[in-house]
Every structure is written in structure tokens, then in C-alpha cells.
Design a protein around this nucleic acid. Sequence first.
RNA 1: GGCGACGUACCCAAGUGGCUAAGGGAGAGGUCUGCAAAACCUCCAUUCAGCGGUUCGAAUCCGCUCGUCGCCUCCA
Length: 465
Amino acid sequence: MPLFVSNTLSGLKEEFVPLEPGRAGLYTCGPTVYNFIHIGNLRTFLWEDVLRRHLEFSGYAVTHVMNITDVDDKTIRDSAKEGISLRAFTERFTEYFFEDIRTLRVKPAHHYPRATDFIPQMVEIIRKLTERGFTYTSEDGSVYFRIAAFPGYGRLAKLDLEGIKPGARVATDEYEKEDVRDFALWKAEGDGPVAWDTPIGRGRPGWHIECSAMSSHYLGETFDLHTGAVDNIFPHHENEIAQSECASGKPFVKYWLHAEHLIVDGEKMAKSKGNFYTLRDLLEKGHAPLAIRYLLISVPYKKKLNFTFAGLEGAYQAVDRLSNFIARLNGLVESGADGGADILPQIKSFKEGFRAGLDNDLNTAEAIGALFSFIREVNPLLESNSLSALNAGLALQALREADAVLDLFPPAPKLQEEALPLIKEREVMRKAKRWAEADAIRTQLSEMGVILEDTAQGTRWRKKI
RNA sequence: GGCGACGUACCCAAGUGGCUAAGGGAGAGGUCUGCAAAACCUCCAUUCAGCGGUUCGAAUCCGCUCGUCGCCUCCA
């Protein structure tokens, strides 16, 4: 079954057909590294991770590029505030960014280009645009893109250009522009501290030009997929299209995909509202990375995700349930039991349901629904000891395949050295019916992150996720 | 003002014309159990914001009303 995605450009759900069979070029808008990323950023990055993984799962050779925006008003402002170089400042937050996405198991992109490493390529695009008459230079030497010269402008954001007129909400103090709708390709900096000397003068790039330069560098002038959150549609992506298409004379991107925002308790997340969370905030409160990952990918990207702590608790329970299921299957495989029910039909329907969900515009809710339906079907068989090791192994294999996309499997269970003697000691206490001592040890282990479950087949341990 | 998304149980959420409205969490009762945990069984929306309409048939299509959220120059 083919993959369908919602293309912002057409406003329709379209079948994904790559420019080159078997390959997919994916450019995802990355962070501006002036602070820790927040859970809204993560929602988008995690959805992009699911997209990339599902493309790979579907057999495409994916080239994934994510930019690191390391020069803009905020990075310049905050590095100056700290009195350190822009590079030192942005490198620190870039490292934090990598740590955070690693914590949430986001598969690394193949390339993470930094804007400041691509100044010559940006200048080249601006030069081309100038050659073709799409730019003008203001008195101070800044270069602007002339929107009036590009008839396709506003197509992505479905903007009524007549609606954006001087006055209204647009600041009119930028008198050097011919038209307020025009945007800066190059900002002249004179003797400012953050500037590059280039053939088009001393200055720094405008915001949008980096993505045009870096995407075409790695993926070509026309590529398959470009993603971001809905707020990127305008002006960022609209302007990228204008720059790239006017410079190359070719269509820029085939599929534009945009994630809806995460909101908190039904409201827009904002520092001023006190409902603003970074990943680090949640980890400090003791929330498990896997629960966060689950929660943020469980709502399909086209829907706003309402983040609540109750929801995060629920996500933890769900992941725990999956983890427990996997542990039981593993136990059964190790036992080597034979005979019992054949669950091939259940496995088949799980695989099909899971895949159909993801193929349907990355409907993770549908896919995860198929996963838990499968768990509900198999658990009774585990309970009644009517499943063979062979079938348990097949079930695990199917789960692992699905996990190539979700990546929600619990970390490989590894018991601390000091835990095993405690578990054995507790067994002795239990046999002697010295319950108080046995329970004390169980509590102690629980504090170490080891959960014990006494079953008819003996005591089972698993790690807290 | 322009453009757009959305309103399904206590919470999250799938479903986009036709079997008994997925799934997760929470909750209630039961089985198992030294207790706990896990698991299992049962219950938990005659109904999909409201009102009309189209249709043999609608949560799904159309219209209106109410409500929520977002974008409209640098916020993922």
C-alpha cells in the first residue's frame, strides 16, 4: 500500500511518489540554537523522526538533512549578552540540542549543516537572484527580495497578497524597502561584530536564505520532502520557495508537510503563561523519556497535541504495558515451550493495521491502536500458558519490525550487580514466609528501579522504564 | 477583516456514507495472589457541540448557530 501525505502546497492528501524511485530527499527545519528546545519543538522533531523512519521502513533510501540555525537576531543578542563569541554560544546549545534528541531516541539526520558554514553558497544564490532581477539593494547595502517579481508568491500559505498592505499589522518603519512584503536576503552590518565580508558586501544572511542554500547543496535544486511546524509556512517556507525557485528556475519541493502545534492544557504554550516546558523540565520532574516520546508521537501530526501531565502519566502506563508484554514474550522464548495456539493470523492483522495506519498520512494513533489490539489478543494466551516459544518469537519479531518506526522498546534489561543477590535473598525469605523482610527487599529493589513480580513460574524481575 | 484547523465517553484519541463507534489512560466489580505487581474477565458513548437538510442509510456530505485554537514578516 502506498504512503499518503498531506501536502500543504495542494491542501490535499497525496500519494508519495519520489522524484527518483526508491529514494527520498528529506529536509526538516531544525532549531535556532539560542536556548534549550521545548516540548513543542520536540513534537515536531519526533514526528519528523517517525516520517523518516517510516520512509525507511517502506524501503526508501532516505537522505535526511536538518539545518542548525546559528546566526539570527536572538543568537547574536544572547551571545553578546554573555560576552562570548557567536560560535561558542551556538555550539553550546547545539550540543544540548543533540543531547535532547538523543534522549528521545530521534534518529540522527545524515547532515546537520550550520548556517554560518554556508555563507558562500547563500551569497551565490543571492548573486543569481540579482542577476535575474529579483533583488534590489537598499541604501545601507542590505539586499531584499522583490516579491512583486515572483507571481507564485503566496501559493503555499494561500495568502491574499492584497490583504497584506502597508499599515495594519505590518511595521512601516522599514522605509528602505520598496514594498513591506519584501524580505531581507542579506543584512548589511557595517562594522557590526557578526558579519562576513563577501562579494555582495559586509553583512549577514537573512533568515530564509540558509535553508535554500543548504537544502539544494545536499538534496538538489528540486527535492521530495520539506517539513516543519505550521508556523513555518509563512513567512519562512513561502520565502524559501520564492528564493529557490527564482534562483534555479525549477520547482523547489514536491511535498510540503507541516505539523500542528503542541498546546498545553488547551492553551498556547508560552513563557508568560507559565506553561512552557523544555525536555529538561520534564526529566527533572522524573518523567521517563520513553513516556515523553510515546505521548508526543501518539497524536497524528496534523492534529494539535494537547499536552497535560495526566496525559503524560497515561503515556507512561501505555509504554509500561508494552514493556511488560515484551518481557513476557521474551520469557516465553527463553523457556522453549512448545505446542499451543498459532497466532499467525493475529500477527498478520497487527502488521497490516500498523502499516495501514502509518501509510495513512502517518496516522500514529491508528498504528498504535493496532499494536495494542494485538497485545490484548495475545495476553490471554500468555496468561493461560497456551503459546509456544516459537509463536512468542514470531510475535516479538513483528513487534521489533514495528519498533523500527516507533522506537518504544524498553532499554535492554540489565540488572545491577547488587540486585541479583537481593532477589535471591528475598526468595529465601519468601520460602520461610518471612514476609516483612521479603517486602523490605522488594521495596529496596524498587527504589533501585527493579520491579519484582511473583508468578506461578517464579519471581520475575523487570526494570522500571 | 482575510486564511485555516477543530469540537467523538471522566481525560487523550481512531474513525471521513453502510458489520455491535478502534485503541490508551483513569474508574468500578471479579479471578489469581502471603501481600504487592502484572495479567485476565466483566462494566464504562443507542451516541459523535447544537439545529436543520441531502440520502434507503451520516459522527462521516451540505447549510446555519454556538464554542475552541492557530496563522496573516522572522514563534517548531
